[in-house]
Simulated assay, not measured.
Amino acid sequence: MVYSLTQLKKHKLLTRMQQQYHRNHPWRLSPGGLYIPHSYQETPPDRLSWWDDVGFILNGRRIIVWWQHPRHVYAVAIEGRAWQEAGPGPQDDWLTEGLKKNYRRVGTSRKKLVSYTCREPSDEAQRHDQRICTIRQRLTAEGIDMEVAPSWRLEQLKWATGISLVAPLEVRSETELAALAALARRLVRQETTLQKEFPGNGYARADWVRETAQRER
């Protein structure tokens, strides 16, 4: 990778900031040296995975991995397609317009605002929501014409280096999470590529439909 002088200065500055932040705000790491934000105690070993996060330390800096299985990217695309197919809805901001104020009495002569109650959506808004739901159910059953390939993107932040990773792994235990972290580490070190790890792998309609029974458990 070739950096301009300005980019190189920014990269070095962010590196120093990341190292300093980690020294002042250390992660609580597992015995295997991982930052594990989620528990897997109640995760069945055969459950389909969707997304997860994991962190580790590399050269005194934090690496945070935001991982998605391709099926999660596919599911988000189905949701977006349902909204697109349903068309624009009515301009009915029922969450913020027409709120009812709820008070609690304080003492004998004063009252304090403690909450709000939203009004019901208009009939037109409810019909639009139902239309989206119906389309979503159909697209979920049929799938959509789309293929999700493995990908990754690195992002320099002030407190860590972030990796947005899409890869067809299953993460249902700390052992499988460690395998995800190991893959991210090798990618950062340029020891491997996603093409080598998952040659010719793309998640498409056939994969989504094949997993229907597992998703509905």
Rank of each mutant, 00 (worst) to 15 (best):
G162A: 13
R81G: 07
R119P: 03
D53N: 14
A181D: 00
I78C: 04
G162M: 10
T15M: 04
N201Q: 15
V209T: 11
I57G: 07
M17G: 06
T43Y: 06
Y21D: 15
E97T: 11
V2W: 15
I135Q: 04
T96Q: 14
R28E: 03
M17C: 11
R215A: 02
A178K: 04
N201H: 12
A181S: 01
K158G: 08
L157R: 13
T15Y: 01
A160N: 11
P37Y: 00
G98T: 06
P31C: 10
E211D: 15
P31M: 12
Q130I: 04
L99Y: 10
R210Q: 12
K100F: 12
N201M: 11
L113N: 07
P37T: 00
S39Y: 01
G200E: 05
P45W: 07
P88S: 07
E42N: 06
R186S: 08
Q20D: 15
G89N: 06
L194E: 04
T175W: 14
T117K: 06
V171Y: 03
R127M: 08
D123R: 03
C133Q: 12
L113T: 02
Q195W: 10
W67S: 01
V171E: 05
R104P: 06
D93R: 12
E42K: 03
L157W: 13
K100M: 14
A141I: 05
L48V: 06
P121R: 03
K111T: 08
L154C: 11
P88H: 05
V114Y: 14
A179F: 01
T134G: 00
Q19H: 11
I78N: 07
V209I: 10
T140M: 03
Q68Y: 12
L194W: 03
Y3S: 02
W50F: 10
R185N: 01
K10A: 05
V188R: 00
T6A: 06
E191A: 08
I64K: 01
V209W: 06
A167V: 13
D145S: 15
T96E: 15
C133H: 12
L180C: 08
H128F: 02
G33A: 12
Q19D: 10
L194F: 04
L165E: 01
V148L: 02
R136A: 12
Q18V: 15
I163T: 09
L177S: 07
R28L: 02
G80E: 12
S109D: 15
Q18W: 10
R127G: 07
S109P: 06
D207R: 11
R215Y: 08
Q7A: 13
P26R: 13
K100R: 14
K9A: 11
W208G: 00
D52H: 04
I78T: 08
A125L: 13
K10E: 07
L48K: 08
E155A: 15
Q214E: 13
D53M: 11
L165W: 01
L99I: 14
W50I: 02
R186G: 00
N24I: 07
L177T: 05
T134C: 02
S30L: 13
H38Q: 09
P199E: 04
V188G: 00
N59T: 12
I163M: 15
M17Y: 10
E211N: 15
P88R: 04
E170M: 13
Q19M: 14
S39H: 09
S30Q: 14
A160L: 07
V76T: 09
P26A: 08
C118N: 06
G33H: 14
Q7N: 13
